[in-house]
């Protein structure tokens, strides 16, 4: 049990410190690397409480895909100016009031959720589905998402699809003059289309592309 507690505190310490470093570090690329460290330690915490499926999905989705895209965007920014402007800007930053507002709201939400969970245990009784402890959490998550709440799942899938198509349309632009390879055209070409034999008269030459 002691070993469990030690490991828990190590992971949570790493998670908190790296979360702070995400906002504090001056280089934006370093911020993203700290974000990745944060994700990894949080997924370790998930695994420690027995939610191994969530932990692994956290690694695959957030660290393996989302953070790579973050890193991609951040690295594409001008390499010379890769400084976090929050601490460098001399005057008052306009982001601070908004950031404070958001963080205060999140803080109170957390207090309500955790306090309710801790001091009003009958809140847990209002859960509609019984938790079956015999199944592994992969199986029980699957039955909750794909059987009990299939309509909500499909609805959120449709919303994501709409968002994806919207993003594609926003960034799509048709450029003229781009040469594209068409495998079909390339393969269906034969000798007749490609080569023409011309008898060249002396001192006349041949006009190409006539």
């Amino acid at each position: 049990m002691i070993a469990h507690a030690i490991v828990f505190y190590i992971f949570s310490l790493i998670a908190i410190v790296s979360a702070i470093m995400v906002t504090v570090s001056k280089n934006t690329v370093n911020s993203v690397f700290f974000l990745i460290l944060d994700f990894i330690s949080i997924s370790c915490l998930f695994i420690m409480i027995g939610a191994e499926f969530l932990g692994m999905i956290m690694l695959i989705v957030y660290v393996g895909a989302v953070a790579v895209l973050f890193l991609f965007v951040v690295m594409m920014l001008n390499v010379a100016q890769q400084k976090n402007e929050w601490f460098n800007s001399s005057g008052r930053s306009s982001h601070i009031p908004v950031g404070l507002l958001v963080s205060i709201i999140i803080f109170f939400e957390l207090i309500i959720v955790i306090g309710g969970w801790k001091y009003k245990p009958d809140l847990l009784d209002s859960i509609a589905i019984e938790i079956n402890t015999d199944l592994t959490n992969t199986q029980s998550l699957g039955s909750v998402i794909y059987t009990d709440y299939i309509h909500l799942f499909q609805l959120s899938g449709m919303i994501l699809l709409v968002a994806m198509i919207g993003a594609i349309i926003l960034t799509f632009r048709q450029r003229s003059g781009v040469k594209r390879q068409s495998y079909f055209k390339q393969i269906s070409r034969d000798r007749k289309d490609g080569i023409e034999l011309v008898d060249v008269e002396n001192n006349k030459g041949v006009k190409i592309d006539a």
């Binding site: 499926f53 692994m56 999905i57 690694l59 695959i60 660290v63 393996g64 895909a65 790579v68």
Partner: peptide, 11 residues
């Protein structure tokens, strides 16, 4: 999933 996660971190 562990194998998949680790190989996706390889990048």
């Amino acid at each position: 999933l562990y194998l998949f996660a680790v190989s996706s971190l390889g990048v």
